[in-house]
Amino acid sequence: MTEPRSPGMSSMPQPAPVHTDATSPAVEMDPVEYTLRKRLPRKLPKRRNDVYVNMKTDFRAQLARCKKLLEGGGHREICVHGLGLAINRAINIALQLQASSQGALQLAANTSTVELVDDLEPEDPDEAGEPMTRTRNNSAIHIKVFYPDPQ
């Protein structure tokens, strides 16, 4: 946590306008550089049959995990969650499960908005920059994949 991740610029002396051509438009530079740190999303429900899909784990591994829950794990329903970019993958997993079940599985999707918090930490402690936080919203999807009850 102590080492700021260097985004290439941090080692350079700060403003250093090396060649400012008279022709180039005055570029508005941030007076202080910040490191953007994304906090984790707030705590989430985690039952045995909740699957949170991400973009780092291999797609097939996540699909296999869901299959295992439904087939071997004895669950009659699982809930696949995806946030932001992972929405696409969550939908993909749910549709794959449905397709490979020969119509036995049904999907019920809900959407929501999740509030996320970013921390902005000043790169250079000597500068007057204050640590800041910023909140933003991202969309999420929650897909129930289930065997419908025979009626």
């Binding site: 705590k43 429900p45 985690k46 699957v51 991400n54 784990t57 591994a61 809900n110 929501s112 929650h142």
Partner: peptide, 27 residues
């Protein structure tokens, strides 16, 4: 939707430090 989860999560998930990422075991 999320409130329900909050109630469930209260026992084992303190807000600031969790043993795992939000996305579960990462294989």
């Amino acid at each position: 939707l999320w409130g329900e989860g909050e109630r469930e999560g209260i026992g084992h998930a303190p807000p600031r430090k969790r043993p795992l990422g939000p996305l579960g075991p990462l294989g």
